[in-house]
Simulated assay, not measured.
Amino acid sequence: MLAVQFLIVCTTSVSLLSGVAQAGTTPNFNFNQPHDINDRTPCCVDRLTTLTCSRMRINTPAKFLKRCANDPDFALIQCCSSCFDRRSSASSEKYNLVVRRHLEDPMKVTCIDRRGGDWCQKMARRENYWQDASFSTIGGCGAFPSAFRECRNTCGYCSATMQMTVVKYDYKLATSTQRCDIKTYFARTDDEMKKKYNPARKEFDPLARLTWKRPKDTDYFVVEDHNYEDFM
Protein backbone atom coordinates (compact mmCIF):
# COMPACT_ATOMS: atom_id res chain seq x y z
CA MET A 1 0.00 0.00 0.00
CA LEU A 2 2.82 2.39 0.91
CA ALA A 3 4.62 1.59 -2.33
CA VAL A 4 1.52 2.43 -4.34
CA GLN A 5 1.09 5.75 -2.52
CA PHE A 6 4.75 6.62 -3.12
CA LEU A 7 4.38 5.84 -6.81
CA ILE A 8 1.30 8.06 -7.05
CA VAL A 9 3.03 10.98 -5.32
CA CYS A 10 6.11 10.73 -7.55
CA THR A 11 4.02 10.47 -10.69
CA THR A 12 1.95 13.49 -9.67
CA SER A 13 5.03 15.58 -8.89
CA VAL A 14 6.66 14.76 -12.20
CA SER A 15 3.44 15.56 -14.04
CA LEU A 16 3.10 18.92 -12.31
CA LEU A 17 6.69 19.90 -13.07
CA SER A 18 6.32 18.76 -16.66
CA GLY A 19 3.11 20.74 -17.09
CA VAL A 20 4.58 23.91 -15.64
CA ALA A 21 7.72 23.52 -17.74
CA GLN A 22 5.63 23.32 -20.87
CA ALA A 23 3.88 26.51 -19.82
CA GLY A 24 7.26 28.24 -19.77
CA THR A 25 7.23 29.29 -16.11
CA THR A 26 9.50 26.68 -14.55
CA PRO A 27 13.21 27.42 -14.67
CA ASN A 28 15.94 24.96 -15.50
CA PHE A 29 16.88 24.26 -11.92
CA ASN A 30 20.50 25.20 -11.44
CA PHE A 31 21.95 24.79 -7.98
CA ASN A 32 25.49 25.68 -9.04
CA GLN A 33 24.94 29.38 -9.36
CA PRO A 34 27.83 31.48 -10.68
CA HIS A 35 29.82 33.30 -8.04
CA ASP A 36 30.64 36.47 -9.95
CA ILE A 37 27.31 38.08 -9.08
CA ASN A 38 26.64 36.63 -5.62
CA ASP A 39 25.46 39.37 -3.24
CA ARG A 40 26.19 42.04 -5.86
CA THR A 41 23.70 44.86 -6.47
CA PRO A 42 22.89 45.82 -10.09
CA CYS A 43 23.30 49.55 -10.62
CA CYS A 44 20.13 51.58 -11.08
CA VAL A 45 20.86 54.01 -13.90
CA ASP A 46 19.14 55.18 -17.09
CA ARG A 47 20.84 53.02 -19.72
CA LEU A 48 18.57 54.53 -22.37
CA THR A 49 20.04 57.89 -21.26
CA THR A 50 18.35 60.25 -18.83
CA LEU A 51 17.16 62.49 -21.68
CA THR A 52 15.27 59.65 -23.37
CA CYS A 53 13.70 58.43 -20.14
CA SER A 54 12.71 61.96 -19.13
CA ARG A 55 10.98 62.53 -22.45
CA MET A 56 9.05 59.29 -22.08
CA ARG A 57 8.00 60.24 -18.56
CA ILE A 58 6.82 63.69 -19.70
CA ASN A 59 5.14 62.67 -22.96
CA THR A 60 3.38 59.50 -21.77
CA PRO A 61 3.36 59.63 -17.94
CA ALA A 62 0.69 56.95 -17.41
CA LYS A 63 2.39 54.45 -19.70
CA PHE A 64 5.78 55.27 -18.22
CA LEU A 65 4.62 54.64 -14.64
CA LYS A 66 2.88 51.43 -15.69
CA ARG A 67 6.07 50.07 -17.23
CA CYS A 68 8.07 51.08 -14.17
CA ALA A 69 5.70 49.04 -11.99
CA ASN A 70 5.21 46.00 -14.21
CA ASP A 71 8.19 45.59 -16.55
CA PRO A 72 11.40 44.66 -14.67
CA ASP A 73 13.52 45.03 -17.83
CA PHE A 74 12.33 48.58 -18.27
CA ALA A 75 12.29 49.44 -14.58
CA LEU A 76 15.68 48.04 -13.58
CA ILE A 77 17.67 48.44 -16.78
CA GLN A 78 16.39 50.93 -19.30
CA CYS A 79 15.05 53.75 -17.11
CA CYS A 80 15.78 52.68 -13.56
CA SER A 81 17.01 56.03 -12.31
CA SER A 82 13.97 57.82 -13.72
CA CYS A 83 11.54 55.19 -12.47
CA PHE A 84 12.95 55.40 -8.95
CA ASP A 85 14.13 58.97 -8.68
CA ARG A 86 16.40 59.50 -5.68
CA ARG A 87 14.76 62.88 -5.07
CA SER A 88 11.45 61.20 -4.22
CA SER A 89 10.99 59.72 -0.74
CA ALA A 90 8.63 57.07 -2.13
CA SER A 91 11.11 55.68 -4.66
CA SER A 92 12.76 53.26 -2.26
CA GLU A 93 9.45 51.62 -1.42
CA LYS A 94 8.46 51.44 -5.09
CA TYR A 95 11.80 49.88 -6.00
CA ASN A 96 11.48 47.23 -3.27
CA LEU A 97 7.91 46.47 -4.33
CA VAL A 98 8.92 45.86 -7.96
CA VAL A 99 11.84 43.68 -6.87
CA ARG A 100 9.70 41.57 -4.54
CA ARG A 101 6.85 41.21 -7.01
CA HIS A 102 8.86 40.44 -10.13
CA LEU A 103 12.18 39.00 -8.96
CA GLU A 104 12.34 37.81 -5.36
CA ASP A 105 9.05 36.15 -4.40
CA PRO A 106 9.32 32.56 -5.77
CA MET A 107 5.54 32.12 -5.62
CA LYS A 108 4.74 35.13 -7.80
CA VAL A 109 7.60 35.78 -10.20
CA THR A 110 7.97 34.29 -13.66
CA CYS A 111 11.64 33.31 -13.61
CA ILE A 112 12.61 32.07 -17.08
CA ASP A 113 15.44 32.18 -19.60
CA ARG A 114 14.48 33.91 -22.82
CA ARG A 115 17.26 32.16 -24.68
CA GLY A 116 16.50 28.77 -23.20
CA GLY A 117 18.29 26.76 -20.55
CA ASP A 118 20.88 25.11 -22.80
CA TRP A 119 22.03 28.40 -24.35
CA CYS A 120 22.21 30.10 -20.96
CA GLN A 121 24.11 27.24 -19.32
CA LYS A 122 26.75 27.46 -22.04
CA MET A 123 26.97 31.21 -21.62
CA ALA A 124 27.30 30.95 -17.83
CA ARG A 125 30.05 28.33 -18.20
CA ARG A 126 31.67 30.16 -21.13
CA GLU A 127 31.44 27.13 -23.36
CA ASN A 128 31.45 26.93 -27.16
CA TYR A 129 31.97 30.37 -28.73
CA TRP A 130 31.93 31.99 -25.30
CA GLN A 131 35.47 30.65 -24.91
CA ASP A 132 36.62 32.90 -27.74
CA ALA A 133 38.73 35.86 -26.65
CA SER A 134 36.25 38.34 -28.07
CA PHE A 135 33.49 37.00 -25.79
CA SER A 136 35.39 35.83 -22.72
CA THR A 137 35.56 39.30 -21.19
CA ILE A 138 31.89 40.10 -21.72
CA GLY A 139 30.34 36.66 -21.38
CA GLY A 140 28.98 35.00 -18.29
CA CYS A 141 26.33 35.99 -15.82
CA GLY A 142 28.24 39.10 -14.80
CA ALA A 143 27.51 40.64 -18.20
CA PHE A 144 24.69 42.79 -16.88
CA PRO A 145 22.26 43.82 -18.31
CA SER A 146 22.27 41.27 -21.16
CA ALA A 147 22.47 38.31 -18.75
CA PHE A 148 19.58 39.78 -16.75
CA ARG A 149 17.40 40.01 -19.84
CA GLU A 150 18.32 36.75 -21.57
CA CYS A 151 19.29 34.30 -18.80
CA ARG A 152 17.59 35.60 -15.69
CA ASN A 153 16.90 32.19 -14.20
CA THR A 154 20.17 30.42 -14.94
CA CYS A 155 22.20 33.31 -13.57
CA GLY A 156 20.10 33.70 -10.44
CA TYR A 157 18.78 37.20 -11.04
CA CYS A 158 15.33 36.02 -9.95
CA SER A 159 13.83 33.48 -7.56
CA ALA A 160 12.05 30.31 -8.60
CA THR A 161 10.35 27.36 -6.95
CA MET A 162 13.60 25.64 -5.99
CA GLN A 163 16.10 28.51 -5.89
CA MET A 164 16.45 32.03 -4.58
CA THR A 165 17.99 34.99 -6.32
CA VAL A 166 21.73 35.26 -5.72
CA VAL A 167 22.04 39.01 -6.28
CA LYS A 168 21.16 41.57 -3.63
CA TYR A 169 18.74 44.28 -4.72
CA ASP A 170 19.62 47.19 -2.46
CA TYR A 171 18.07 50.54 -3.40
CA LYS A 172 20.62 52.61 -1.49
CA LEU A 173 23.57 50.91 -3.17
CA ALA A 174 21.91 50.75 -6.59
CA THR A 175 21.26 54.50 -6.67
CA SER A 176 24.51 55.67 -5.08
CA THR A 177 26.23 58.06 -7.46
CA GLN A 178 29.61 57.15 -5.97
CA ARG A 179 29.16 53.41 -6.29
CA CYS A 180 27.29 53.38 -9.60
CA ASP A 181 27.49 55.07 -12.99
CA ILE A 182 26.47 54.33 -16.58
CA LYS A 183 29.69 52.35 -17.16
CA THR A 184 29.30 50.21 -14.04
CA TYR A 185 27.23 47.03 -14.00
CA PHE A 186 27.19 46.44 -10.24
CA ALA A 187 27.53 48.75 -7.27
CA ARG A 188 31.15 49.00 -6.22
CA THR A 189 32.06 47.13 -3.06
CA ASP A 190 33.95 48.75 -0.18
CA ASP A 191 37.22 47.29 -1.47
CA GLU A 192 36.54 48.58 -4.96
CA MET A 193 35.74 52.01 -3.54
CA LYS A 194 39.07 52.11 -1.73
CA LYS A 195 40.91 51.27 -4.93
CA LYS A 196 38.96 53.85 -6.90
CA TYR A 197 39.29 56.80 -4.52
CA ASN A 198 42.60 55.98 -2.85
CA PRO A 199 45.00 55.20 -5.70
CA ALA A 200 48.69 54.89 -4.98
CA ARG A 201 50.02 58.41 -5.04
CA LYS A 202 53.03 59.02 -7.19
CA GLU A 203 55.19 62.11 -7.34
CA PHE A 204 54.50 64.07 -10.51
CA ASP A 205 57.30 63.54 -12.96
CA PRO A 206 56.80 65.38 -16.28
CA LEU A 207 59.81 63.58 -17.79
CA ALA A 208 58.06 60.23 -17.30
CA ARG A 209 55.86 61.08 -20.30
CA LEU A 210 58.77 61.61 -22.62
CA THR A 211 60.29 59.14 -25.03
CA TRP A 212 64.05 58.97 -24.78
CA LYS A 213 66.31 57.70 -27.53
CA ARG A 214 70.04 57.28 -27.76
CA PRO A 215 71.42 57.83 -31.28
CA LYS A 216 74.09 55.53 -32.57
CA ASP A 217 77.72 56.32 -31.90
CA THR A 218 77.03 58.86 -29.18
CA ASP A 219 76.61 59.03 -25.42
CA TYR A 220 73.86 61.66 -25.59
CA PHE A 221 70.13 61.10 -25.37
CA VAL A 222 67.52 63.08 -27.29
CA VAL A 223 63.81 63.53 -26.68
CA GLU A 224 61.31 62.49 -29.34
CA ASP A 225 57.81 63.96 -29.86
CA HIS A 226 58.21 66.44 -27.06
CA ASN A 227 55.31 68.87 -26.72
CA TYR A 228 56.22 71.65 -24.35
CA GLU A 229 52.63 72.88 -24.28
CA ASP A 230 51.80 69.91 -22.06
CA PHE A 231 53.66 71.57 -19.25
CA MET A 232 52.32 75.12 -19.70
Rank of each mutant, 00 (worst) to 15 (best):
K66H: 12
L51H: 04
V109Y: 00
A143N: 13
N59F: 14
I138L: 05
S88R: 12
L97Y: 14
R67I: 01
Y169N: 03
T137G: 06
C158F: 02
N70G: 09
G140V: 04
Y169D: 04
S92R: 14
T60P: 03
Y157G: 00
G142P: 04
S82C: 01
F74A: 11
D118H: 10
M162C: 06
E127H: 02
Y169A: 02
G139F: 02
K122C: 05
S136H: 11
L76T: 03
T161D: 03
G142S: 14
P61C: 05
K108G: 00
A133Y: 09
C83P: 06
C155H: 07
V167A: 03
D170E: 08
T165L: 15
V45L: 03
R47V: 11
T60K: 13
T154Q: 15
R67G: 02
A90S: 15
C155Y: 14
R115E: 05
Y129K: 12
R86S: 05
V109P: 00
M162K: 08
W119H: 08
T52I: 13
F74R: 10
T110K: 15
C155N: 12
S159F: 00
L51Q: 10
R57M: 11
F144T: 14
M107A: 13
W130P: 02
Y95L: 03
C155D: 14
Q78E: 04
G116N: 12
K172R: 14
I58T: 10
P72T: 10
C83G: 03
E93C: 05
A147D: 11
H102F: 06
I58V: 08
Y171Q: 05
A75Q: 09
M107P: 00
S134W: 10
G140L: 07
K172W: 07
C120T: 04
A90R: 15
Q121I: 06
F84D: 07
L51I: 09
R55S: 07
S82N: 07
A147W: 06
N59G: 06
M123Q: 12
K63C: 03
L51M: 06
K168E: 06
V167P: 01
A90K: 15
A62K: 15
F148D: 02
E104W: 13
I138K: 11
G142M: 05
N96I: 14
Y129M: 07
M123F: 11
C80W: 00
K172H: 06
